[in-house]
């Protein structure tokens, strides 16, 4: 038992496990079916949205519902620039446009606190959607756009790359003094400011950083959907699902939101194809149960069992 406990305290082993999982994932197109590649692409997309949402929410407590807005901005950036730019620069452009929009929006809204911030970010999705609709209909005279199609394996590779960069970023952020400062903002903004933290800058920058990954994910996913219009691109489900997935998995550990997103996204894909009519219902039930009985998410629950098991083991030995 001691060995197992030691193992879980050893970050080096975590690195090793992550690396092995990553190699298995990266080589998936060599041994997996086309269906598996597409399924896992969809799951990683949700993981990216969930982790980047968590990156801002978990320390600060600011609940943003703008995920769909930044994701949609990425989609439209690809729809517009996809033909002029090579794939990778277009994906990065999707992230950058979202980053810049988030900087501007953040500078305006992060003075708002609590539910006002949440409602504003939610309104942002609708606002951008309708601005875009208006623009497309009245100025460019289009309703939707075709996006350059990419090969499934390429899409998979790019989305995996975005995921890896995101996880490294989140890992470094959490460990850095800025991670500490973000948590202090979540605890007491006023005290943080009086201890020398540039609260507004840090909040706005982290918000924009999370938006970068949402935008990049949107840009690459657009190449899978071939045709997008503002309704598809700015779907509010993309704001809600990451929140639910993060709650489901928990947020205390680096990997908790990943677990939540993977399980949830897998269930979602299965339910959507098999029981589309029950999807939202089952979804709702799972959520209510998660909120009521899993205050620290699934990961929190498993860790509790794990620690209880260890204690009993110690008593017995």
């Amino acid at each position: 038992m001691d060995i197992i406990r030691g193992v879980f305290k050893m970050p080096r082993l975590w690195w090793l496990i992550s690396l092995i999982l990553l190699v298995l994932l990266a080589t998936l197109p060599l041994y997996g079916s086309a269906y598996t590649v597409i399924l896992i692409t969809a799951i990683i997309m949700y993981v990216i949205l969930t982790v980047s949402w968590t990156m801002f929410f978990a320390p600060t407590g600011y609940l943003s519902l703008a995920t769909a807005a930044f994701f949609g901005i990425g989609i439209y950036t690809m729809a517009i620039l996809g033909e002029q730019l090579p794939l990778l620069p277009a994906v990065i452009a999707g992230g950058l446009v979202s980053f810049v929009v988030a900087l501007i929006v953040g500078a305006i809204t992060l003075r708002l606190r609590g539910v006002y911030f949440t409602i504003f970010t939610f309104g942002l999705v609708e606002l951008i959607k309708h601005l875009l609709l208006f623009w497309e209909i009245n100025v460019t005279g289009t309703r939707g756009r075709f996006v350059v199609l990419e090969n499934n394996n390429t899409i998979f590779g790019v989305i995996l790359g975005i995921f890896v960069v995101l996880m490294l970023t989140y890992y470094l952020l959490r460990r850095s003094k800025y991670g500490l400062a973000l948590r202090s903002i979540g605890e007491n903004e006023e005290a943080a400011a009086h201890l020398g933290v540039n609260v507004n800058l840090l909040k706005v920058f982290t918000f924009a950083l999370s938006a970068f990954f949402m935008g990049a994910a949107g840009a690459i996913m657009a190449t899978r959907w071939t045709y997008v219009d503002p309704y598809v691109a700015f779907n509010v489900l993309h704001s809600f699902l990451p929140v639910l997935m993060a709650i489901f998995g928990g947020m205390s550990q680096l990997y908790s939101p990943i677990i939540g997103a993977v399980i949830f996204a897998y269930i979602e894909e299965q339910l959507l194809t098999r029981f589309p009519e029950y999807f939202m219902l089952i979804f709702g039930v799972i959520l209510v149960v998660a909120i009521l009985y899993l205050p620290n998410g699934l990961v929190g629950l498993v860790r509790k069992w794990w620690q209880k098991g260890l204690r009993e083991e110690n008593v017995n030995s």
């Binding site: 003094k177 500490l180 400062a181 948590r183 202090s184 605890e187 007491n188 006023e190 005290a191 943080a192 201890l195 020398g196 933290v197 540039n198």
Partner: peptide, 18 residues
């Protein structure tokens, strides 16, 4: 206005960092 969910040590470190 201490940071309730942070260890004492980290409360102090924040000040010296920023």
């Amino acid at each position: 206005k201490v940071f309730n969910n942070m260890p004492v040590f980290e409360n102090v470190r924040l000040g010296s960092f920023f």
